[in-house]
Design a protein around this nucleic acid. Structure first.
Length: 490
RNA sequence: GGGCCGCUAACUCAAGUGGCAGAGUAUCGGCCUUUUAAGCCGAGAGUUGUGGGUUCGAGUCCCGCGCGGCCCA
């Protein structure tokens, strides 16, 4: 056991005193008739008065001799309680004053009244320790600000900072609204493997793990795409999945190694259909969760209502960087062009990586209002269908808002022979040093070769959408337990 | 991976140019029966992230390391 601070020692002494009284400081059951909010509502609406039993964490104590005010907080909110020596008896009143601390969970029974200052308050007739807290809470007025502690001990952040609690309520409502939107349109929610023998569906490096009994390497999925497509092949016309993907790359204010993604696939739809659905979906979620499609993100007013403007990727990059990548058919010449405008890119970057760098550095930060960029180069989109009459370009779009990419979608490639060629090209890119290149997936090719209907597919980062709708600049603010380095025991 | 900034009591923060490590909250003791950042009086509380170095003397200066934040890649 670690060495206790003075404050902790003090609480252990109190814990012992409670036990010496023959009282269990961690009783298994509670008596509760109302939540704090229900109690106040009942009093305000003038229902006949009766005794009620409330529970919660002691958040503040104001002791004034023979009477004490305190606030308790449960999941519904806060309510003030009032303890008087003459109502409780000297013994019980002293017990509360001596051995109850801020942070303890307490059960109280009594009746409601209104104080002189107008606050609905429970006058306590009986109280009970529900769980003794042995570690002092963060300070009541300034709360908890230390970012590292907020992330490492999120429970303290949630206790101390109400607005943080609110973020994760909004996040849950976002996910719930997305499900409602898709369910209402006949989509089937499915679950596909997180552990995969071959990873794919995105350009990223995977986490590798190992199955002991099967003596087999497995990968944590970087995308749900290839399994969801198998379900389209299987005959479901509309499927979606909301779950975690894992990418073995750096952490940043926009990246966490595990993150939550929505993907949906719709047979007999193309990327234009999906685009319309995407803008509808995002504005539906904003309307459902925030009551408006007009939001403020990092000081910018953003209106998410459809339609969102469509710009071609090529045009957007040309306008913002001055480079028309069509003029540079190979990596070498494009590299020279990017360097010529001062772009800091690696010499060994593939043409796709260079185009991606142009997009990320010159275009993405400017896309504050919701925007679709459409029609991507084939080499960065190995799973998307080529545009008719333009074999170098695929029917793909990405949606941006607040200067962030939030979704990615395409008309799915359903030509098994073209798909095989794309995988082979990715294999060559991998050999040339692109560690994020797509793996050859024979099993998926076999599935495709049975025939996949024309299909539109879509993926969206739930974390980023939550950032957008809660006005947070860092992804760590919308993930309850963001990834941090483990702190050494020293 | 690089640059900059931060790490001091349980929490929030102070400690010009190196010179006794402080305050508020919280805690403990005393007074106080309608307070709500309650009030008044008193007390205790620290390996200044960590390991070295310079110095009579280091929270402060130098070097290494750890963790975090922001920016860049």
């Amino acid at each position: 056991m670690e060495k206790f601070s003075d404050l902790e020692r003090q609480r252990h002494i109190k814990l012992e005193r409670i036990r010496e009284r023959g009282i269990d400081p961690y009783p298994p059951r509670v008596q509760r008739s109302h939540t704090a909010t229900e109690a106040i509502l009942e009093f305000e609406t003038g229902k006949p008065e009766r005794d009620m039993s409330l529970v919660g964490r002691l958040m503040s104590i104001r002791a004034m001799g023979r009477s004490t005010f305190a606030h308790i907080e449960d999941g519904s909110g806060r309510i003030q309680i009032y303890l008087r020596q003459d109502a409780l008896g000297e013994e019980a009143y002293e017990f509360f004053k001596r051995d109850f601390d801020i942070g303890d969970f307490i059960g109280v029974t009594g009746h409601l009244f209104r104080t002189r200052t107008g606050e609905v308050t429970l006058q306590v007739r009986d109280f009970k320790m529900l769980a003794k807290s042995l570690h002092p809470l963060p300070e009541k007025w300034h709360g908890l600000k230390d970012v590292e502690t907020r992330y490492r001990q999120r429970y303290l952040d949630l206790i101390a900072n109400e607005e943080v609690r609110e973020i994760f309520v909004i996040r849950a409502r976002i996910v719930s609204a997305l499900r409602r939107f898709l369910d209402e349109r006949g989509f089937l929610e499915v679950a596909t493997p997180v552990l995969q023998p071959i990873y794919g569906g995105a350009a990223a490096r995977p986490f590798i793990t190992y199955h002991n009994i099967l003596d087999q390497d497995l990968y944590l999925r970087i995308s749900d795409e290839l399994y969801l497509k198998r379900l389209i092949i299987g005959g479901y016309e509309r499927v979606y999945e909301i779950g975690k993907d894992f990418r073995n790359e750096g952490v940043s204010h926009k990246h966490n190694p595990e993150f939550t993604v929505l993907e949906f696939y719709q047979a007999y739809a193309d990327y234009s259909d999906v685009m319309e659905m995407a803008e509808e979906m995002v504005s539906y979620v904003a309307q459902e969760v925030l009551g408006t499609t007009c939001i403020t993100y990092q000081g910018n007013e953003i209106d998410l209502a459809p339609p969102w403007p469509r710009r071609s990727l090529r045009q957007a990059i040309k306008e913002e960087s001055g480079i028309d990548y069509q003029d540079y058919p190979d990596a070498q010449s494009l590299y020279q062009a990017v360097r010529a405008i001062g772009g800091n890119v690696e010499p060994k970057a593939t043409r796709g990586k260079l185009i991606d760098a142009l997009l990320s550095n010159y275009v993405e930060p400017k896309l504050i209002q919701p925007t679709f960029l459409v029609d991507y180069p084939v080499e960065v989109s190995p799973l998307a269908k080529r545009k008719p009459g333009n074999s170098g370009t695929v029917e793909r779009f990405e949606g941006f808002a607040g200067g962030m990419e939030i979704c990615n979608a395409f008309t799915e490639l359903n030509d098994p022979l073209d798909q095989e060629e794309r995988f082979l090209a990715q294999g060559r890119a991998y050999e040339a040093g692109d560690e994020e290149a797509h793996q050859m997936d024979e099993d998926f090719l076999i599935a495709l070769s049975y025939g996949m209907p024309p299909t539109g597919g879509f993926g969206m980062g739930i974390d980023r959408l939550t950032m957008l709708l809660t006005d947070r600049a860092s992804i760590r603010e919308v993930i309850l337990f963001p990834h941090l380095r483990t702190k050494g025991q020293s």
